[in-house]
Amino acid sequence: MINEYVASIEEACGEEKDFIVTFKHAKKDEAIEKIIKHGQVIKALSGVMFDVSYEGKTLKVYRTGRVIFKNAKNRGEVEKTLEKILS
């Protein structure tokens, strides 16, 4: 499932320990719709960024096809969450 949607998962530098997920260009809109559908949109900023809560995790979703996983423990946790939310 991840391979169908995700182009890359990178650990961002900085103390925040965020992971930045980039969706494949052709699948980004579909992926974002799934995240918004399965998660709970807490806040939205000018229609370009959404704070989404999913199983106690905070995701920042961007219309350009990127998602920041805030304070994720590791890459495995990010992949596991993506598997579920994109299914």
Binding site: A12, G14, L45, V48, Y62, R63, I68
Partner: peptide, 25 residues
């Protein structure tokens, strides 16, 4: 707002900036 979030927001408006530690921790 965190730096990566801010950089991604600027990106949505076509503005390319760097975020993070810039290899200078």
């Amino acid at each position: 707002i965190d730096s990566h979030d801010l950089a991604l927001l600027l990106d949505q408006f076509g503005i390319m900036v760097r975020s993070g530690l810039h290899c200078a921790q």
